[in-house]
Design a protein around this nucleic acid. Structure first.
Length: 297
DNA sequence: AGACGTTTTCCGCTTACATCA
DNA sequence: CATGATGTAAGCGGAAAACGT
């Protein structure tokens, strides 16, 4: 592979590629050829945050990379289009630049290497405002649609049932993936590792959301129960107050032996001798034979 | 040893698209 | 057929951890 480096006015600036300062940009190899052009521009936002990060510093103008094959055997039909990029933005075309081990099988767009300048966060706004994603130009391989050449018309991936089922099974085993597992799954399902990673992230999010809903429902029921309990106690209190105002004082106090529960510090009566004809309901603690106080004693 | 930069991974939030009623 | 609701793939930004310098 040969990387030809074309520096426009950038000679004024120290070149820095992908954060590697003073990195040698020129690489020689056989077969694949690129022309990498850098030009100064402060106008376009396309380069996005990521590419901005690749510039020499926060104040430097954005770097534009033009990667175009100049090898004579590269036909236009072999070039990977990046329609979301305007002509003065990144043009990355190649027969194959595979960063993820997909080989040089051009029939599998899925394994195309979009990861030349970023392993993620590479959607780009077109001039019409439409955000095209990686999916737009790089779909998964292996589907029937793709085999039928319908890949260009598909704008959003839907995993096949088999793929989803396989991922589900895998998710049951472990909710996170290490790089090896990710690679293996991706290879098995003919997806990009990034897709597997995203699927697991979304799956975890769905699981968490469902759990949150369950928790919410539980808390709602608890709240209802407590509200009902509170209503009952209020009523009981009212009854007791009414009783108090209608009976002489000596009749209001039952002759009881009071003990205090060490755990909740509520007072319990162990002997109930009441002078009242009507027996008000006691607090559950007082009725609870199996309360901690009694259990511990 | 500690500071610093880079990379990777995760999460939360959001968007855009596909599908269905 | 149009439309709104829903599900989901995927993007972005930030945080944290690991690692190298």
């Amino acid at each position: 592979m040969e990387l030809g480096l074309s520096l426009g006015e950038t000679q004024k600036q120290p070149f820095r590629l992908f954060g590697k300062s003073n990195e040698t940009v020129k690489k020689l190899d056989d077969g694949l050829g690129f022309c990498m052009g850098l030009a100064l521009s402060v106008s376009d936002e396309m380069t996005s945050k990521r590419v901005d990060r690749l510039t020499t510093d926060d104040h430097s103008p954005s770097v534009e990379l033009h990667l175009v094959p100049f090898s004579t055997h590269h036909k236009p039909s072999h070039q990977l289009p990046f329609p979301w990029l305007s002509h003065n933005q990144i043009n990355l075309t190649s027969e194959r630049i595979n960063a993820e081990g997909g080989g040089t099988d051009s029939s599998s767009p899925d394994s195309s290497s979009f990861h030349m300048y970023r392993n993620r966060r590479h959607n780009h706004k077109r001039e019409d405002g439409h955000v095209e994603t990686e999916r737009d130009s790089n779909s998964r391989g292996g589907s029937d649609d793709e085999d039928n050449g319908l890949i260009l018309s598909r704008k959003k991936l839907r995993l096949t049932k088999d793929q989803s089922a396989f991922l589900e099974d895998s998710f049951k085993e472990h909710h996170t993936l290490n790089p090896k597992q990710k690679q293996a799954l991706a290879k098995q399902l003919n997806l990009r590792p990034r897709q597997v990673e995203v699927w697991f992230q979304n799956r975890r999010a769905r699981t968490k959301l469902k759990q949150t809903e369950v928790d919410c429902e539980y808390l709602k029921r608890c709240c209802e129960t407590l509200t009902e309990e509170n209503r009952r106690l209020q009523k009981e209190l009212q009854e007791l107050r009414a009783l108090k105002s209608s009976k002489p004082f000596y009749m209001q106090l039952p002759a009881t032996t009071l003990t205090m529960c060490p755990s909740c510090e509520r007072v319990a009566s162990t002997t109930t001798v009441t002078a009242t004809a009507t027996k008000p309901r006691l607090h559950p603690f007082l009725q609870d034979q199996g309360h901690a106080l009694h259990a511990s004693s």
